[in-house]
Simulated assay, not measured.
Amino acid sequence: MKEESFNDTFVELLFAGDIDNDGKLDFIFGANRNYEEERVILFLSSKAEKENVVKKVSEIAIQFDC
């Protein structure tokens, strides 16, 4: 996972397991870019291309700043 910057946050592994039933690990990460955001990203192994293990297939972000 590559991000240009994080503001008082960090990446958190929320889930590792076989979501897409292909026998390989899939991942869900919490990756808030700043402390006033909730962002979750889904990576699936069945969508991976060439030498990659997984591919980002979905992302949702909710801002709750003032």
Rank of each mutant, 00 (worst) to 15 (best):
M1L: 08
K2H: 09
K2Y: 11
K2I: 06
K2P: 06
E4Y: 15
E4H: 12
S5L: 11
D8F: 08
D8L: 07
T9Q: 05
T9Y: 05
F10W: 07
V11L: 09
V11W: 06
V11H: 07
E12Q: 11
E12N: 07
L13K: 09
L13V: 12
L14M: 10
F15A: 03
A16K: 14
G17Q: 03
D20M: 00
D20Y: 03
N21I: 04
N21C: 07
D22G: 04
D22M: 01
K24L: 11
K24N: 13
K24H: 06
L25C: 04
L25K: 12
D26I: 01
D26P: 06
F27C: 03
F27R: 02
I28R: 03
F29N: 01
F29C: 00
F29M: 02
F29T: 09
F29K: 02
G30H: 05
G30L: 08
A31C: 11
A31H: 09
A31S: 10
R33W: 13
R33A: 13
N34Q: 04
E36K: 12
E37N: 03
E37L: 02
E38A: 14
V40Y: 14
V40M: 10
I41L: 10
I41S: 15
L42R: 02
L42K: 04
F43M: 08
F43G: 01
L44C: 00
S45A: 02
S46V: 03
S46C: 07
E51W: 08
E51M: 04
N52Q: 14
N52R: 11
N52E: 15
V53L: 12
V54T: 15
V57C: 05
V57R: 01
S58N: 10
E59H: 01
I60C: 08
I60L: 10
A61E: 14
Q63N: 11
F64N: 13
